[in-house]
Amino acid sequence: MTAPDTASGTKLRAMNIDFFYGRNQALQDINLDFPENMVTALIGPSGCGKSTFLRCLNRMNDLIPGALAKGDIILDGQNINTPQTDVVSLRRKVGMVFQKPNPFPKTVFENVAYGLRVNGETKASVIGDKVEASLRRAAIFDEIKDRLHTSALGLSGGQQQRLCIARALAVEPEVLLMDEPASALDPIATQKIEESVRELKSQLTIIIVTHNMQQAARISDRTAFFYMGRLIEEGVTDIMFTRPSLRQTEEYITGRFG
């Protein structure tokens, strides 16, 4: 497989992706580019395949028995959808934040330090600096700097989610996948997550699944609309939300179906 031209600014490229849960085909021939340092929102009704597609991008679906992904996923010119790919290293490069905050039952500090230690970092000063830097990047440090050594489970839902973002950032990923990261949060916590995303995109490529059309319009640069396992339309967010090309997209985003 020829590597794509990464000089064009494409960080990640999905090519001809088909995905099967056993005999059920969940994704059909998805082709989508993710430009570097941009936020791309994946939208579509429940069951359309957007979360499945998101998990293809760092091979999280490998963990599902009977699942099969076909096609190429090119990250910085290298196809990662091959048996030779080191998935641990891949997931360090392509981090993920899930719908429900899932901090470890450890202190705030240890939650963020965990990934660093797993990756072989032993120097306490380096770990300390990186934990603080990650918490700052996730826009939560100032709120919890006095509680670094208390249980992460004592934080509010919004704080836990930003802690999970900090945890993902600690290992310095280049791409961050976010699967409905604010769906369980109140408007203030949601706003803080969205602010973090806006700040982070200068350093990362971000791909976010959301059911919230307004959120997609607020935070993404590009939007891709999925329906029944197919990519229907993708483009610049402002255009997608003011004059999408296809009637199907228009009907979905205006709430006429889905």
Partner: peptide, 8 residues
């Protein structure tokens, strides 16, 4: 918060 044709 209408979008697309509705917003237009």
């Amino acid at each position: 918060q209408p979008v697309a044709r509705d917003l237009r």
